[in-house]
Design a protein around this nucleic acid. Structure first.
Length: 558
RNA sequence: UGGGAUAUGGUGCAAUGGCAGCACACCUGACUCUGGAUCAGGCAAUCUAGGUUCGAAUCCUAGUAUCCCAGCCA
């Protein structure tokens, strides 16, 4: 795995120092997702960071499910998360669940109560909110803040035993209602939730809150460096408070880094869930989704995503990475590794008039010019072929060097042809081209050495097969999805062309045998991978990323 | 208007008191049986104002801008 590095990022520096000073004997990190949705590319950054650090410093990294809220969590998500982490190429040292520690959490909560550092509050959630104060005004103490330790112990036990309804009371840490850090204003640490938990079933009807649980989870697992995102910076004093006020087995430290933002991409689990439940996309693994499973279906490789995560770096500055950089990472890999194939997405019939009837020629084409070891394949050609509609212009614009009346082009790995005649339907649409081939140009080289600039991909009518092609583009039209206009939401920015299905595509016959997720470069188009539903009866391919296309870009600008 | 953070080319990341560098993107050109790839070149940045210093992106002071925080979510 690619671990070599030029300069250390701020976390690597901290860890290096901690190891050199002897503070850290063995680095232990963790990736702690809540199983309430599928993982996305932002999580991939965190995964690569935490697992990558463990690899780099010969440490360990746990996969831990932060499942403290049964209302939102499901086993389906646990399964998908394990699959995605594994697919990305990482192995966890231990598989953990916060819910495995519920008994211990309960004991620590009791310890806090015994030390007069927690109390049961009977205020409603509205009252708690009102009494929390505001950003500029201190909060006010709960009338229940001075309850005796004995009473609190009794009440908390009765909470656990299910004697109270949801919302009737909560357990709060007794810290400081006038703290300028709102997280320290007696945070709620246990709430009553009479819900079945995906792992503990109905054993519990009280569940710990994130702030209370997270540091303890880290401590139990001996996590040395607990890495999370920037929005938790304000929680760090609270994280430390719990660790300092309870007899924990180890003292972890929290460090924060900036989460990944990508242009034209939504990275909120909640909104991604909405896209799925509202059928805006076909599922969490829709190739347009920024989920890891979406990228997998789209044809991205684990190493391309790791490479992306490693190269964007880690810092504490909020930033927005251009999605083009991700495209670059996958292109770079697929260019070297994927075999080439010819696929005509929008076919235009071409009849080679001087080609003898019923004669078929068999040619050889290289599978990957970047890798001679990929070998060659046989291609057959006959009198009638198909080329791309966009490769013909009756009245060529300046700079167009593909086919037009009187012009000569090369059919890739085959022959040079010249367009002689254009057939149109009653509406004036071009339906058929008549060309003549230079029969001495077999293989694509002119016998007299004349230069032919244009090279087109093609398929032969005799053996081409029909295929469905899914073209994809970004789901949203807004570069920075955190910068929406007043009163608009993300549904106002959905890209109507994010998915285009082409059902009349013709592809070379070998593609019938493509295996699900097998990757190809369709010559002059881009990288495609076979859909999970592909079959020899109906091959289906998904666009991973298009080839760079200076000509297309130039045309768009006109 | 309380608290916590962050400011380096269009974008992301370096430079840890000593020539501001790398990648992506963009623009040229070369080459090419993929308008791909490759190769060569180019454009382009230290938030502002003071100060310390022989020397400041880096240290100090004062501003400015942006982000996060008032869930019984994580």
């Amino acid at each position: 795995m690619e671990t070599e590095n030029k300069s250390l990022n701020f976390l690597e520096e901290i860890i290096t120092n901690d190891i050199e000073s002897g503070k850290t004997k063995l680095l232990i990190t963790r990736f702690p997702p809540e199983p309430n949705g599928y993982l996305h590319i932002g999580h991939a950054k965190s995964i690569c960071l935490n697992f990558g650090l463990a690899i780099k410093f010969n440490g360990k990294c746990n996969l831990r499910f932060d499942d403290t809220n049964p209302v939102k969590e499901e086993d389906e998500y646990v399964l998908s998360i394990k699959e995605d982490v594994t697919w990305l190429g990482f192995e966890w040292s231990k598989l953990c669940y916060a819910s495995d520690y519920f008994d211990q959490f309960y004991e620590w909560a009791v310890e806090l109560i015994e030390n007069d550092k927690a109390y049961v509050d009977d205020q409603s959630s509205d009252e708690i909110r009102k009494n929390r104060g505001t950003l500029t005004e201190a909060g006010t103490d709960s009338p229940f803040r001075t309850r005796s330790i004995k009473e609190n112990l009794d009440l908390f036990e009765r909470m656990k035993n299910g004697e109270f309804d949801e919302g009737f009371c909560v357990l709060r840490a007794k810290i400081d209602m006038s703290s300028s850090n709102l997280n320290m204003r007696d945070p709620v640490i246990y709430r009553i939730l009479k819900r079945e938990h995906h792992r503990t079933g109905n054993k519990w009807c009280i569940y710990p809150m994130y702030d209370f649980a997270h540091g303890f989870e880290d401590s139990i697992e001996g996590i040395t460096h607990s890495i999370c995102t920037l929005e938790f910076q304000d929680h760090r004093p609270l994280y430390d408070w719990f660790i300092d006020n309870v007899s924990v087995p180890s003292v972890p430290r929290q460090y924060e880094f900036a989460r990944l933002n990508l242009t034209y991409t939504l990275m909120s689990k909640r909104k991604l869930l909405e896209l799925v439940s509202n059928n805006v996309v076909t599922g969490w693994d829709d190739p347009r989704m920024p989920t890891i499973s979406g990228f997998r279906a789209r044809g991205y490789t684990p190493s391309s995503i790791r490479r992306f995560c490693n190269e964007i770096g880690v810092a504490r500055t909020e930033s927005m990475v251009e999605v083009e950089f991700l495209h670059h990472c996958i292109r770079e890999e697929l260019n070297k590794e994927s075999n080439r194939a010819m696929a005509v997405l929008r076919p235009l019939k071409v009849i080679i008039d001087n080609w003898p009837d019923n004669v078929v020629d068999e040619l050889s084409a290289e599978n990957n010019p970047e890798n001679p070891e990929a070998g060659t394949r046989k291609l057959k050609i006959g009198k009638t072929i198909y080329i791309e509609q966009t490769d013909f212009m009756e009245e060529p614009v300046k700079g167009f060097f593909r086919l037009s009346p009187g012009k000569e082009v090369r059919l890739k790995s085959a022959y040079l042809i010249t367009c002689n005649d254009v057939i149109k339907d009653v509406n004036g649409n071009v339906t058929e081209l008549h060309c003549s081939a230079d029969m001495d140009s077999r293989g694509g080289e002119a016998p007299d050495g004349r230069r032919v600039k244009g090279t087109l991909h093609w398929v032969w009518e005799g053996d081409a097969i029909k295929a469905k092609i899914n073209l994809y583009d970004h789901l949203f039209t807004l570069r920075d999805m955190s910068d929406m206009e007043e009163g608009k939401d993300y549904t106002d920015y959905l890209n109507p062309n994010s998915h285009i299905l082409l059902e009349e595509a013709l592809v070379e016959p070998g593609l019938a045998l493509a295996k699900p997720l097998e990757k190809f470069q369709f010559l002059r188009h881009g990288y495609f991978c076979a859909d999970k539903t592909t079959s020899q009866y109906m091959p289906v391919f998904n666009l991973t990323v298009s080839l760079k296309d200076p000509w297309g870009k130039k045309q768009q600008k006109r």
